[in-house]
Amino acid sequence: MLKGKSLVSIDDVATDDIFEIFKLASEYKKKVSKGEVLSELNGKIMATLFFEPSTRTRLSFESAMHRLGGSVITVSEAKSSSASKGETIADTIRMASSYSDIVVMRHPMEGAARLASEFSSVPVLNGGDGSGQHPTQTILDLFTIWEKFGRIEGLNVSLVGDLKYGRTVHSLIKALSRFENAINLISPEILQMPEHVLSGIKNQQNIRKISNLEDVLDRSDVFYVTRIQKERFVDMNDYAKVIGSYSFDLATVSKMKESAIIMHPLPRVDEINPEVDRDKRALYFTQASNGVFVRMAIISMILGVR
């Protein structure tokens, strides 16, 4: 039961609830595509507090709330207002939660959402905290896989790129390892999956570090590619080398299974050549659009209208 709960980490969501969200998200997806106007959250208010820039997450949360007939109050630049005056997150959230029925927060510090949920009088949805967690992204990632394969188990999934700082993969690996999936980790030495994430996973026998992307190209069902940030490298020659080995172009894609899919939390930079966009296996834009339906489902379940 998600009703009345905050969503800080994917661990806060029971497996049954994940499937409930999938069902409801599919229903909303159909309704929205048919042009139905929904009013389930009439009179409900969502406050969005983004202390860090966001495009997709913010837009899709706000779109989700509007699609359900609710309204959104927001601070255009949370960082430049309350935080710059020295207000704590605790105080900001006390105030914002008294103005709304649900709060979405993104913050550059790890643990900020957990803290916010302890001071808020209404449920808090974590829209990303530093390099920590991004649970709604994970659920929409799982939903995209589920839509394509009809299941989220028994799959071979490769996580590619920056596995150290990319928070989406930290939440995703936790969720995927709840089910019987073979998980391959493919990243440059300096951007490997942190030990604190791996040590938090009970079922580790199906997780493997793979040094070469080529080794899994014809095996994997899902390639989850993340952006490798240039600023992580001191030497730009190292970046150039790395990006070559972890990027996808049509030649790479031609070695993949016909049924495989490529996902990316976006924004992508050099990891996926735009020529790949035309391939049916490129699912990252579908994934991004699913963000709205999955967030609609999460919001309405938490607010108890479903």
Binding site: T88, A90, E110, L115
Partner: peptide, 13 residues
Amino acid sequence: SNQNCVTNSKEPV
């Protein structure tokens, strides 16, 4: 030990 952990800021936690 994580300098970017919210508990290392001035929050009342």
